[in-house]
Design a protein around this nucleic acid. Structure first.
Lengths: 204, 204
DNA sequence: TGACTTTTAGACAGAATGGTCTAATCTCTG
DNA sequence: CAGAGATTAGACCATTCTGTCTAAAAGTCA
């Protein structure tokens, strides 16, 4: 046979993680029993407990991999952008691509948090992801000399875009989020020049 | 006895809904079995199935009541505000109050959506809530003559504030969301006067 | 070849789930 | 009072869930 040696079947661990990634994300972690993961991955139950300590560790690994893959993708997107403001907007460009993908069903960690119980893998992974997300925007906001509050506002637009894309089935919302971010960036930049601009009040 | 007749014990239905409201919201719908709702409400299993067709209808009613109560609360908050812009900002004031409440654990419907399966009560209730939310902002944005896109951006800030308040345990984020909304409102107002202002591009 | 690791199939257990059913009791109202 | 509606306790059921165990087969590599 010319085609090298048949690239031997992927390990049970890999097949398990691939199937878990799809099912957990598509249907929610608690909605998917291990029996379904086993059946769809074609792996024996014993192999699950040989490779993982239990469902909890499978979930932990699933969430960890999701975080790592998304962070890597953002890193790629950022590489092409020059300067903190451009990098901030590039994050929203990455969201636009993500939302447009066929199977998009919201942010993995927002969804996981809704199912989280105290001390669970979901809780820990969400905490880690949130730290990463805040640092992502926080770094660029600080670099640009903008006030810290802007980072919190950008995180809100990031999360809000995810929710709208998911719940309203509206991938195009990433553009509106990017526009809003650009607007906030402009305002922050203007305020950096002039120390204290007048602010709008509620009862005007 | 002077104190009128002892106000007879609240109905099984009411006690069930009160307990379900607390448990479903605090721990997530799928994390709460009917046995726990029954035990904590002191209601017999038979009464659940006498008053509801099953857990699904209990969930449906729980979500419906949550929506109704929040909509009523927003209505109150809006009554005090004059003009579309003030009403928009008043929604964020309502969020600030909500986030500051002790048991806050995120938006009921964002959380429910993460557990939703196709055709479930969670899915339907979330859809209804999203329609209401978009109309809430959409009405005021239209009244003020702002572009439709602004409504989508305000919804994103609303959702994003909920997520940050929940996942980052930061109730104060409502203030930053309000500020961002005010900023977008200002920009929209300026753009209403001058038809086409220059927009920031990524690669500048 | 022989030792070691990985994977397999399937039986099995123990707990939790939502739901049904019966029979007795309580409560309100005509 | 009588009767209808509401509530109770508890047994019971079928299903699903995670996890354990055994014994054999397959793959890996020195």
């Amino acid at each position: 046979m010319s085609a090298a040696q048949t690239p031997r079947r992927r390990s049970a661990r890999d097949r398990l993680l691939e199937t878990a990634d799809r099912l957990f994300y598509d249907e929610g972690i608690h909605n998917v029993g291990i029996d379904r993961v086993l059946a769809q991955s074609g792996v024996a139950k014993g192999s699950l407990y040989y490779n993982f300590s239990g469902k909890d560790e499978l979930v932990r690994t699933y969430l960890h991999n999701r975080h790592a893959r998304w962070a890597a993708r953002i890193d790629e997107e950022l590489a092409a952008a020059a300067g903190p403001s451009a990098k901030i907007l590039a994050v929203f460009d990455a969201l636009a691509e993500l939302f447009a993908e066929p199977g998009f069903r919201g942010c993995t960690f927002i969804n996981a948090a809704a199912e989280a119980q105290p001390g669970s893998a979901e809780e820990q992974a969400t905490k880690d992801f949130r730290t990463w997300l805040h640092e992502l925007f926080g770094t660029f906001v600080t670099e640009a000399g903008y006030p810290d509050k802007l980072a919190a506002q950008l995180v809100m637009l990031y999360d809000g875009a995810n929710i709208s894309a998911q719940l309203d089935h509206n991938p195009g919302v990433a553009g509106a989020a990017r526009d809003a971010a650009a607007d906030l960036l402009d305002t922050a930049q203007a305020a950096t020049r002039r120390p204290r601009p007048p602010s709008r009040r509620a009862s005007d």
